[in-house]
């Protein structure tokens, strides 16, 4: 009847490495069991996947390794609900279901030749990571890269190895902040939107990309507007409760758009046209 794959059927993959990012966040590197699937797999920076622990359920995570590094797919998982709890119990060698890639991606082609401002909070750095690494792997295509990244405490900062590396790049400006004073922390202190305000990056030839908790996104968007960033130069990637991942089950909609299929990447200009249900 059909030779198109059943969109609900996950591919089975094996966990090859687990990285403890923070006390509540772990990153999982996985490879598909079927070599053909692994070989033929392609995705774009910003696309997401559904991870399955069979018997518990599925949840959505961004693929935070870049398409330029295809030895494995990496997902970062914060322990908050039942599926994420089950993922945190997995060990290297365990099997996991993967439905990917799903959704749209960052308009990285349109960003060529522009300065890029990344603003992330907590695990919200995950989707930005894939694009940052992609851009670093295609460095000549992009202008200056500024990354403002914050978490509650220094312990809650993700991808510490990446941060160290980015800090060493002369063409990347990395600005780290934590919410409150912390012993041994000599960098900035303050919420991400406040730091954005202090840094006050110029909107000129710049695209801003932000991801973080809903409340952070809200204030970052306001901050960017104050800095005269135009709505179509502000890009965010949204998280919602998702089930099907293919625009059918109904729960991740914002107006007529489904975050899982039409998103998760939106420009603020797009979001302005829809109800404020973020």
């Amino acid at each position: 009847m059909t030779n198109i794959k059943n969109p609900y059927l996950p591919d089975i993959a094996t966990v090859t490495r687990i990285i403890d990012e923070t006390p509540t966040i772990k990153s999982y590197q996985v490879i598909f069991n079927d070599q053909e699937t692994m070989k033929n797999f392609s995705f774009q920076p910003g696309q997401v996947g559904q991870l399955s622990v069979f018997g518990v359920g599925e949840a959505t995570f961004v693929i935070n390794s870049p398409p330029t590094r295809m030895e494995y797919l990496q997902f970062s998982v914060m322990k908050v609900g039942e599926v994420t709890k089950a993922i945190h119990e997995l060990s290297v060698g365990d099997q996991i279901g993967v439905r990917a890639p799903l959704g749209n991606w960052f308009p990285y082609e349109e960003m060529k030749g522009k300065k890029i401002l990344f603003i992330g909070g907590g695990i919200g750095l995950a989707p930005l990571r894939t694009l940052i690494l992609y851009m670093l792997d295609n460095r000549p295509d992009y202008g200056d890269i500024t990354i403002i990244y914050g978490a509650r405490t220094p312990i809650d900062l993700c991808y510490k190895d990446d941060l160290k590396e980015w800090e060493s790049h002369s063409d990347v400006e990395l600005i780290l902040t934590v919410d409150t004073e912390f012993p041994g922390w000599d960098k900035r202190v303050g919420f991400v939107p406040t730091v954005l305000n202090e840094v006050a990056p110029s909107p000129e030839n710049t695209i801003a990309i932000t991801c973080g908790p809903p409340i952070m996104i809200k204030y970052v968007l306001q901050g960017l507007a104050r800095l005269n960033f135009k709505d179509d130069r502000i890009i965010t990637t949204l998280e919602k409760r998702m089930k099907c991942g293919i625009g059918l089950c109904g729960r991740c909609n914002i107006g007529s758009m489904y975050v899982c299929k039409d998103g998760p990447v939106f420009s603020l200009a797009q979001l302005r046209e829809y109800p404020s249900e973020i």
Binding site: E82, P214, K240, C252
Partner: peptide
């Protein structure tokens, strides 16, 4: 793995694991 009808009128329909509900 089953799929069952759900209703957009239910509180938990859009409730996220973090407790946030759009």
């Amino acid at each position: 793995r089953i799929r069952t009808w759900d209703a957009c009128m239910f509180h938990h329909f859009t409730l996220e694991a973090s407790g946030h509900n759009p």
